[in-house]
């Protein structure tokens, strides 16, 4: 299966500070989750892939077009990309419809009738179908977030890049967004710091920290890295990465040496993620 998008030794520096170290990876069809702490390089990676940001070195290929090569190739790639940045500063005086209409023009929907139908379609997808005529200033935070996602969906792009799409959404809206994303045909790359999103949604997980990918594999593979290392007992485990008292009064410990009277429990994505983070100098399961 050929990759929808690929990084070939891509790196990015802001001034002299490296934001992304030389990274190579291929993205195929399905939902890929990018997990990592703030400042790990998630946004940098997504902006590079979206063509909003040029890399300092390396090659980025999207749908067979080398975006680092020529302007013409970049434009071809952009016709196949939908990108939703982490934060969108909306022009507040515009209506939701006018905003999407404008971005659809920028995405080369020149025919007015077809463009308007497409705008209605993406409004419906994010459940804003009855808010089209409303001024953006009057929309709630969650509605604005969904509007930002809607603009990325215009034209059903082959590669959809969403930076923290679930931030600001309530649980119900998050669930409906998951439903929407899992139903899309192309490749979806989302960054998140919510581990539930990853376990609920992603076929593949990338864990990124300090500008480098620490893990690349399926959710099952990620969970396997933490198997046997999460314990529940009356007391905290010594040397644990994280411990907390659960509702049952028992203490859940991630990592460390288990106390004799504690039992092993199934790890969550969050446990695995915390353990990975604690071992930043020994990357595991990284496929080049």
């Amino acid at each position: 299966m050929s990759a929808i998008a690929s990084f070939d030794s891509v790196s990015k520096k802001y001034g002299r500070a490296p934001a992304l170290r030389a990274t190579s990876l291929n993205l195929h069809r399905g939902v890929v989750g990018l997990l990592g702490p703030n400042g790990a390089g998630k946004t940098t990676m997504l902006r590079l892939l979206s063509t909003a940001l040029p890399p300092s070195s390396g090659r980025i290929v999207v749908c067979g077009f080398d975006v680092t090569e020529s302007h013409a190739d970049r434009v071809e790639a952009r016709r196949r990309i939908g990108y939703c940045p982490q934060e969108v500063t909306f022009p507040r005086g515009m209506t939701a419809f006018a905003f999407l209409d404008y971005l659809a023009v920028l995405k080369e929907w020149t025919d007015k009738g077809r463009r308007h139908a497409e705008v209605e379609r993406v409004l419906d997808l994010v459940h804003l179908g009855d808010r089209g005529a409303m001024k953006i200033a009057k929309l709630s935070g969650g509605q604005r977030r969904r509007l930002a996602i809607a603009q990325a969906l215009v034209g059903s792009p082959d590669l959809l890049i969403l930076d923290e799409p679930t931030t600001g959404l309530d649980p119900e809206q998050r669930a409906s967004l998951r439903g929407l994303l899992s139903g899309l045909a192309g490749t979806v790359l989302i960054s998140t710091h919510q581990t539930e999103d990853v376990s609920a949604l992603c076929d593949r997980v990338l864990v990124i920290d300090a500008g480098a990918i620490r893990f690349d594999g399926t959710v099952t593979e990620l969970l396997a890295t933490a198997a046997g290392r999460v314990h529940l007992g009356p007391a905290a485990t010594s040397g644990a990465v994280q411990t907390w008292k659960t509702g049952t009064g028992l203490v859940r410990s991630v990592g460390g040496q288990p106390a004799p009277d504690s039992s092993v429990v199934d790890p969550s994505v969050e446990d695995a993620y915390l353990l990975l983070r604690s071992e930043r100098h020994t990357p595991q399961g990284v496929n080049p």
């Binding site: 179908g129 009855d130 089209g132 409303m134």
Partner: peptide
Amino acid sequence: QGDEAALR
């Protein structure tokens, strides 16, 4: 008041 659901 601009309620589309009402018009619907």
